[in-house]
Computed example of a mutant assay.
Amino acid sequence: MFDPFKDYGQAGYLRNRYGEKDPEIIREMEHTLFRAGLGEALEHLAKCDVLAYADFLIVHRILFFAFYPWAGQDRAATAPEIAVSKAGTLFSHPMDARRAIEEGLRVGQDKAAMRQRPGEVMGWFAYGHPFLDGNGRTMLVVHSELCHRAGFSIEWHRTQKLAYLAALSAQIATPGHGILDEYLSPFVVDSAGRTHWGGVIGDLHGLDGRSAGNTVEGAYSDSRVAQKYQAFELKRGEALQRKR
């Protein structure tokens, strides 16, 4: 069980407002809240001339605050000393999450770059992984808005979850080689209105792989965790160097 706060027995999963522990109930409550808040989240993004890290946090808060009191706070605030992974893939250090998201937003708001490299943008978002939960849906909403502004849409309902997650994990581990761009290319279509694609993603139960589950690797002060993190970062850095 993913328990970064170490109080699951007393406070439930991630200190949710109801002290809920049942994974199925939590999954359904998250999805219900996601659908309920999606319209407001899309309205917020539509009003922003330029999307910033603060907007990423706001979208998460809109979607999940009714369930998680810490919604809208990133890992630098909620779990600054803890290394988090999923299915063997490490995410950024909490203090680097903002930088990763901002790099994704920088590329994603260049319309030509977004059309060419939508997978790279999603890869930066996923590597940043700023929240303890709700990353997949938050990323999906912001990414879809960036696609819309660049004049295209991605038909997420046609993607296959396991294949997508495999490509996403490879993109995180070896950035700069277009792995996720290649996977997403068959699903790129002409832009649709926010009402249309908002309805489509509202029906998705997330592409963040709850079945795999987040894992607490441990504290960065643990030498084993620090070495594992450094090795992962070195591999990512080498991949980016090869691209150049």
Rank of each mutant, 00 (worst) to 15 (best):
P4K: 13
P4G: 10
P4D: 09
F5H: 09
K6M: 07
D7P: 00
D7R: 08
G9L: 06
A11E: 06
L14T: 04
Y18S: 05
D22H: 02
M29W: 04
E30Y: 02
L33Y: 04
L33D: 10
L33S: 13
L33T: 03
E40A: 15
A46F: 08
K47D: 14
A52E: 14
A54L: 11
F56N: 09
I58D: 12
H60T: 10
H60A: 12
F64S: 07
F64P: 06
A66E: 12
F67C: 02
Y68I: 04
W70P: 04
W70Q: 08
A71E: 12
A76R: 13
T78A: 00
T78L: 00
I82N: 02
A83M: 08
V84D: 08
S85W: 04
A87V: 00
M95K: 14
D96G: 13
A100T: 01
E102P: 03
E102T: 10
E103Q: 11
L105Y: 06
G108Y: 02
G108A: 05
Q109E: 12
R117I: 06
M122I: 12
G123D: 14
H129S: 03
C147W: 03
H148D: 15
H148I: 07
R149E: 09
E155P: 00
W156D: 06
T159S: 06
L165A: 04
A166P: 00
A167Y: 11
I172Q: 03
A173L: 09
A173V: 09
G176Y: 06
E182V: 08
L184V: 13
L184R: 11
S185L: 12
D190P: 06
G193M: 04
R194Q: 14
H196R: 12
W197R: 08
G198Y: 00
G198F: 00
I201H: 03
D203N: 12
H205I: 13
G209K: 04
A212D: 07
A212M: 09
G213N: 07
Y220S: 03
S221D: 10
D222R: 01
V225K: 11
K228W: 02
Q230D: 15
F232Y: 07
L234R: 14
K235I: 07
A239T: 12
L240G: 01
